[in-house]
């Protein structure tokens, strides 16, 4: 407690001239076709965005994208092909070896390909440990920029959320880009309506 008071009083003692908070309303970029821009940016960061056609079965689409995925983790009601329900694992460690995870995104951002995923499974590990990741996203929930996104994002009781923009990557060896550092080696955003 005394350390806290020492730090705060040292801050107060040293604070001289103060500055006002600016009004944060930049003339932020708006894309005429935010969905198209989102798909373009996702591609540039190593992922892809695919629109689900009307009447198309989502499970069949996923199988056609990842025909070899032996273990599929999902707690989403429409995903019949799931082999593991991440809500039913005892420990997150049991998710190791997951080939594909299918998860729900809530907000897409056209300027940077980010998708907001509030943790809506028991163990957040599923977002990162799967070899490949499919994010379902309602294409009407794509906004142009991060200012809009931060006004829209919500948490649930799990208290964790993440913006994911494409697959995991590293360039730590001679700046050579390698996709699939620790998280997903590939990310597909399936756009629904």
């Amino acid at each position: 407690m005394s350390t806290k008071n020492d730090i705060l009083s040292n801050i107060r003692r040293h604070t001289g001239q103060t500055y006002d908070m600016p009004v944060i309303e930049p003339a932020a970029i708006q894309y005429p076709d935010a969905v198209a821009r989102f798909a373009e940016v996702i591609k540039s960061v190593g992922g892809s965005a695919i629109e689900l056609q009307e009447g198309e079965d989502i499970n069949e689409r996923i199988i056609s994208l990842y025909p070899e995925a032996a273990t599929i983790a999902s707690n989403l009601p429409g995903i019949r092909i799931a082999t593991i329900n991440p809500d039913e694992v005892e420990t997150p460690h049991q998710l190791n070896g997951t080939a594909l995870a299918v998860v729900q995104g809530e907000v897409g951002v056209a300027e940077n390909g980010c998708v907001w995923i509030p943790q809506n499974v028991k163990e957040k590990a599923v977002y990162f440990i799967a070899e490949y990741l499919i994010i379902l996203l309602d294409k009407n929930k794509i906004v142009s920029n991060m200012h809009e996104a931060y006004r829209k994002i919500r948490f649930n009781d799990n208290g964790f959320g993440v913006f994911i923009s494409g697959p995991s990557k590293t360039a730590d060896i001679e700046q050579a880009l390698v996709v699939g550092a620790h998280g997903a080696k590939g990310v597909v955003v399936l756009l629904t309506t």
């Binding site: 964790f160 923009s165 998280g183």
Partner: peptide
């Protein structure tokens, strides 16, 4: 969050020339 949105837009673009880092975790 509105202040944060300004920094998130600047950070990865300034650091590595990416539009965003792959993960922005809260």
């Amino acid at each position: 969050y509105q202040a944060l949105s300004v920094f998130i837009r600047l950070l990865a673009r300034s650091a590595t020339g990416q539009p965003a880092t792959a993960y922005t975790s809260h």
